[in-house]
Design a binder for these strands. Structure first.
Length: 420
RNA sequence: GGAGAGGUGGCUGAGCGGCUGAAAGCGGCAGGUUGCUAACCUGUUAUAGGAGUUUUGCUUCUAUCCGGGGUUCGAAUCCCCGCCUCUCCGCCA
């Protein structure tokens, strides 16, 4: 959420910046400001009435005063109702505004995304290469059919070497983040509606979430959890920045999104992800943003995959974020790069919603900045590893960093002709 | 799922429907005392939002005792609903 005071004082700057990501006809800051003007008037009015009441309630009033206060009480109630309605309207309008894009974020949508870094080269195959679905089938690492039988479409079951490889990836990430002094959290995988609002995923993604009969929803990214971790807290300033990473499965309905381009594990209802999350002082957030980009790059470099990093245009960043970079791995069978990590700086936008603050030198409570980055989502890495590392004989070379986490530290996965 | 107990400032913990933003203690901060430390003494000590102002300080008002409603001229205090914590019983692939 943006700061109404900031908007009042920097109307033109804010407007210009927001237009980088919004349609002009959808941006109406003037209405918001005038609602706030009205809100201030009502506060003045209602507080004057209350002051009057408080003045005569300091001691026992006489009969006349009691009669007068009775009608005053009704006025107060009416004025409070007006104020509440108005505040709700203002909050809704304010909450619907996206974050102000950072200065170096260009205007427009996806088409203006800019590749800022490329690592490695597209692998070339002098044989008929397979896509990851075919590879997973012949290697016996993923069981799509039985997963569909158990859970319906959009799920898969890791099997044997596939399950071990998935676990190895997670272990590799965990070891990496731990060595960088990020603290490991395994959060609950169900969260309350309030938490989903605070994280900014509601109301927008209501239909994308799975809901339980207890009005809890399944975690769709642990960013939802981590953003709430220090909700309504004043963090000790000497403990900042607080660096966390969390593991969680992520559940998404992905209603109606199936396309040929998203076969296999590229998009599903459940996948594993490790998420980095930082709470920091405002002056540190852009340095930490760069740090997060470096960490995600280092993880993919370690796996030896070809990838690119894109800086997203304003319209393609999620609403809470001032700037986002995506790290995308190359999927040869599709001829495209697919996102495995999204690195974002929310500035104080999320913290304002969650009331996460710290005390600065002058004793003032200031909203922290929050950043998050996947580190990483496995469901597109495994396809990239299978496809980019496939050999002429149908085997797949296992990235060296993962071998220590696999029994016998194997160099290759071979087709499994004995599977049932 | 059933029965009960509870939730008050940074912490412990009082609290009678009105003079209680809230006693007392602890802690924190500033100062004093003091060879040093400890002890002691004095003062100070929440957050948010309005308004004013000689505008970075100060004045003033309002709200906040888990949250939301209600009763009342007036609620930390009484009533209802919810959330959370604890105890006991039941259930538990």
């Amino acid at each position: 959420m943006l700061d109404i005071k900031y908007l009042r004082e920097n109307l033109e700057i804010a407007k210009a910046a927001l237009l980088k990501r919004m349609e002009p006809e959808k941006l109406d800051l003037e209405t918001i400001i005038s609602l706030d003007d009205k809100r201030r008037e009502l506060i003045k009015e209602s507080e004057a009435l209350k002051a009057e009441r408080n003045a005569s309630s300091k001691s026992k009033p006489d009969a006349n005063t009691i009669a007068a206060m009775k009608s005053l009480g009704e006025k107060i109630k009416a004025s409070e109702t007006d104020l509440n309605n108005l505040e709700e309207e203002l909050q809704d309008k304010l909450a619907a505004l996206p974050n102000i894009p950072a200065d170096d974020v260009v205007a427009g949508g996806k088409e203006n995304n800019e590749v800022i870094f490329t690592s490695g080269k597209k692998p070339e195959f002098n044989f008929d290469f397979k896509d990851h679905v075919a590879l997973a089938e012949s290697l016996g690492v993923i069981d799509y059919e039985r997963a569909a039988k158990m859970s319906g479409s959009g799920f898969w079951c890791y099997r044997g070497m596939g399950a071990l490889l998935e676990w190895a990836l997670l272990s590799y990430f965990i070891a990496y983040h731990t060595s960088n002094n990020y603290q490991f959290l395994i959060p609950p995988f169900l969260l309350t509606e309030k938490s989903a609002y605070t994280s900014g995923h509601l109301p927008k993604f209501r239909d994308e979430l799975f809901w339980t009969q207890d009005k809890l929803c399944l975690n769709a990214t642990s960013e939802m959890m981590l953003g709430n971790y220090h909700r309504e807290e004043i963090l000790p300033s000497d403990k900042l920045p607080l660096k966390y990473f969390a593991y969680s499965p992520c559940f998404r309905r992905e209603a109606g999104s199936y396309r040929q381009e998203e076969r296999g594990m590229v998009r599903g209802h459940q996948f594993n992800k490790i998420e980095m999350f930082i709470f920091c002082k405002p002056e540190d957030s852009w340095n930490l943003f760069d740090e997060l980009v470096k960490h995600t790059e280092a993880l993919v470099d370690g796996l030896g995959l070809h990838y690119q990093v894109s800086k997203l245009a304003a319209g393609d960043c999620s609403a809470a974020m001032a700037k986002t970079c995506d790290l995308e791995v190359w999927l040869p069978s599709m001829g495209i790069y697919k996102e495995v990590s999204s690195i974002s700086n929310a500035l104080d936008y999320q913290a304002r919603r969650g009331h996460t603050r710290f005390k600065n030198k002058d004793g003032e409570n200031i909203f922290v900045h929050t950043l998050n980055a996947s580190g990483l989502a496995t469901s597109r890495l495994l396809p990239a590893i299978l496809e980019q590392n496939q050999q002429a004989d149908g085997s797949v070379k296992i990235p060296e960093v993962l071998r220590p986490y696999l029994p016998g530290a194997p160099e290759f996965i071979f087709p499994d002709n004995a599977k049932i």
